[in-house]
Each structure stands twice: as structure tokens, then as C-alpha cells.
Design a protein around this nucleic acid. Structure first.
Lengths: 254, 254
DNA sequence: CGTAGCTTTGAAGATTTTCAACCTTAGTGG
DNA sequence: CCACTAAGGTTGAAAATCTTCAAAGCTACG
């Protein structure tokens, strides 16, 4: 809607209009004055550098976070030190929804590259939701969407071969980039093979091999972090095989 | 809180007090008069028989459902016919949260045994939430909890061996039964090996073998659907190995 | 230019799946 | 009352997939 660029002085407000609140507001349109009220509670912090933590597991939950630019991973750590990636978060996506429940974060979040974040104090958001029914509705939808997406991921992990998982991962990234106005067929992975593997429940070598194989089969062109999707149809076919209950692309929702 | 038994005439109301709304109300206590307002919108339907569908993927979303007694599975169907189980729902647990998002159910729900269900018209629930801040808060918590649980499941599926998955599944069931006042160490599985396997991303034979092995190792006693946990500590140890970020049992929250 | 960190690749090893047979239980009907 | 059948469960062996271990290649960065 508001397509303005970020302006230095009025940065906070504008930043929110054009990005952070898109996820919350655009889907069903709050009234402009309500958007302003929402804007008023949003904070924008200095950008995170690669490796910086946004929050850590166990910390008290106070804010939801919206990725403006960059990318963030969420992960848990096993007691023997190695980490398990539970999500990647691209621009426009929200973090922290799992922490509302018990007031503390259940996973840590770390920037995969230089990343700008908006912060939404959850208590304020709750207050506002009480007085703006359509915001409450958006909040419910937002939470519900997260549940759907996770369920889809569970179905993927519960059923798929390594091939399906990697294909599905690429399609997911592709769609998410596309939605934010980036190329759906040509993008950079901000995460390592290791992190992809951890997320998909595969060894990093398996991920690497699949990338190589897809390239040999002319489905992808991969050059380190740079991925180009050459044959989306075949990628899709690998996944469609398990038909995720909702006809994903049949409805132009979202 | 209300520990009354179900009384025939006033069944609907009482039923809700002692069970269906526990999940929504008890965690942080609505005021009694608010609970009554909530009760007023709850419907209770005839019980479902084993195999009956509660809803099907693609149907319009109107209600959330709370399992009162019995058990329900949610699943998606691949185009080649076989199903993928995405969840099991025991008494006190809520179904349908994933459907708020786009107004239609993304998976089907079917009774695994004779099952009683409460129905909560979501629109009414939203209206009520607007006027009862603590109910809104409970709703957010409910949705957030679902997100946490799914994230935990994703972590499990993404990281575990068959052994860990089955161990984790049993512990999860055990805890859920316990919370509802059933035995944590002696219960009946209402789902088949096939369904467990589908849920955990394992072949049904693998599930069966693990049950047998656990029995050989004196961790379980399994006799068809009847499971007894003999050595919870060792079951727990198989899972703890991956430390689910939140110290699960350290805090008596819930 | 050299080192550190990813990534790729190969080969061996482990786990899990698949296929197939058999067993058990519960329900049915002779 | 017993045999029969169907559905679910168990078990074994072969086959497939994925992981692990190991080594080498590539890039980026200081």
C-alpha cells in the first residue's frame, strides 16, 4: 500500500508503514487511523549484524519482532552443544509467537546477515487488539497462519525423502521471496548447508549432494549461496506428490 | 476448579465447566461471570463414533472444537490416497486452530474411538474476546501454545532417530494423559501402529519393532493397544539428549 | 598469500524401509 | 461351538536411503 522509501527522520513510522506491519495490516486492511495507532507502539532498533542474537532461549518475552530486511534463524540448543534450526525468517515475517504462551522464549534467534528488525511490545499490542476488533482478528490470523505453516512443515518432515525436503525448502523460499517482491527464481541463501540440513533433518552432506544432483538434472543452478530455479515444475512435482491438503496455489489468498 | 460430574439435564453447561473450557479458562482464570458468557456460546453435539469425521479438509471453518472424551486424529491426504497424520487430540485439547487463517480447514479430523466434542463458534468467540480482555489473552496463549508444541514436534522430526521419536511420542502421551487425570504409566493407544508411524515419519514396522525392543529392555510392557511405562527415566533419557530449549519440567507452568 | 570456514565428493557403515510371511484377535456365520 | 475372515500386529531378510568419516577444493578475508 504505502510504497514510500525509508526516510531518515521519520524513519520509525515510515519503516513500519512500508514493511513491518504489512504482515499484520495489509492482509485485511485496518483503517488508516488504526494503523497509526499501531505504528505508535512499534520500535525500530539498530540493525543486527550477522551472528548477533535477537533474543535467546529462556529470556523473558516482551516483544514480537518483524524482520524488515535480512534474515534470521531460530534455533534450540542441545545440551551437548550443537544446535537445531527450527525456522528461517525472511523480510515481513514475524518472530516470537511461540513465546506468548509462557512468557519466555523457547528458542533463540540470530541474524544470518545484516538484518533490520521492528519490535512490537506485546502488551501494548494486546491492549490495542482489545480496542480494535479488526486488529484482534489479524492477530488471530497471524497466529493461525503460523500454526498452519508449522503443520505443513511437520507433514513434510514426517513423510518425505531428502529429495522432497530439499525441493520443498526451495519452493518455500521461492514463494516467500516472491511475495516480498524479490525474484522467485534467483536468490541467495543466507544460511549454510549445515543450517539447511539441521532445519530439514538431513546431514549437511545430503543437502549438498541434492543441490548437486538437482543441478545435474537442470532443475537448479547452484553456485555456493546463489541459487537459480530453472525448472520449477519439476521441483513442484517432487513435493506435490504428498499434496498438502490445502491446494496451496489454487487460491490467490494471502 | 469446578469438579462436578456431568449431569444429564444441564449437561451442556456443566460439561463445559468441567472439561471443554478448562483449556481456555483455567490457565489464568476468567471471572466466573465471563466463564458463563463463554458457556453460553458453546454447543455440544452427539458423540462421534470411531471413524466419523469431525470436519474435512477444505470445509468452511466456523468452529473450534474441544475434545471432551475420546480421541481424534487430524490428517491430510495425498493425491495417491494414503493419509498423513498430523496430530492426535486427547481430552481437553483444541482442534481447528490452523483454520482461522484462511477460513477453511487445512486438514481432516476423524474420531479414533467414541468421542464427545464441544463446539465453539469462532465468530462468537472473537466477539467475546474483544469485550473480555482476559479471554483475548487466553486465546493468544492457546494459539501460542499450539505453535510451541508444533515447533517442538518439528524439532523432534527434524533431529531424531526412530528410537527418540517413539520414546518422545510415548512421553508426550503420558504427560497429556496425566494432565487430564488419567494414569501416566498405564494407558491405551487409540491409534494404530500405522497411524503412529505416519505421525512420526516412520514405517509402521519400525514402530512395532521399537515397541518390541522397548519391551525386551523392560522399558515398556506392550500388549496391542495397551501400554505400560515401566522405566520412564530411560524413556526420558532417550529424548532429553536433544534438550528442547525450554526446560520442560523445570517450571510448573502449564 | 595463507588460513579458516564452507562446500563438495567418495566410500563405508548404519539405520530404516520395503516386501513377504505369519501370527493374533475379534467379529461372523455356519 | 467352531471355523473363517479381515484387520492389525509382529518378525525376518533384502534393499534402499541417509549418515558418518575422511579428504580435498574453493572463497573470502585478513
Amino acid at each position: 500500500m504505502a510504497d514510500k522509501n525509508v526516510i531518515s527522520l521519520d524513519k520509525i513510522k515510515v519503516a513500519c508503514h512500508d514493511c513491518s506491519l504489512a504482515e499484520l495490516c495489509l492482509p485485511m486492511g485496518l483503517r488508516p487511523e488504526d494503523v497509526d495507532r499501531l505504528d505508535a507502539i512499534v520500535k525500530r532498533n539498530r540493525p543486527l549484524q550477522r551472528g548477533d542474537n535477537l533474543f535467546r532461549a529462556g529470556e523473558t518475552f516482551r516483544n514480537l519482532y518483524v524482520v524488515k530486511t535480512g534474515a534470521v534463524k531460530t534455533f534450540t540448543q542441545s545440551n551437548d552443544g550443537d544446535e537445531q534450526v527450527v525456522g528461517f525468517h525472511l523480510p515481513g515475517e514475524v518472530l516470537g509467537l511461540d513465546a506468548i504462551q509462557d512468557g519466555s522464549h523457547g528458542c533463540s534467534a540470530r541474524a544470518l546477515e545484516t538484518t533490520a528488525i521492528c519490535e512490537l511490545p506485546f502488551e501494548r499490542l494486546e491492549d490495542l487488539s482489545s480496542s480494535i476488533p479488526s486488529l484482534q482478528h489479524q492477530m488471530f490470523r497471524l497466529l493461525s497462519k503460523e500454526i498452519s505453516q508449522e503443520a505443513e512443515m511437520m507433514a513434510l518432515l514426517g513423510r518425505s525423502t531428502a529429495e522432497e525436503r530439499v525441493a520443498s525448502f526451495l519452493i518455500s523460499l521461492s514463494e516467500r521471496f516472491k511475495r516480498r517482491g524479490f525474484s522467485a527464481t534467483d536468490f541467495f541463501l543466507s544460511m549454510s548447508r549445515q543450517e539447511i540440513g539441521s532445519y530439514l533433518g538431513l546431514a549437511l552432506e545430503t543437502v549438498s549432494r541434492l543441490f548437486t544432483r538437482f543441478q545435474d538434472e537442470k532443475i537448479l543452478k547452484v553456485e555456493r549461496k546463489h541459487v537459480q530455479i530453472l525448472d520449477r515444475a519439476r521441483l513442484q512435482a517432487m513435493v506435490t506428490h504428498h499434496h498438502n491438503c490445502e491446494p496451496s496455489q489454487a487460491r490467490p489468498t494471502t
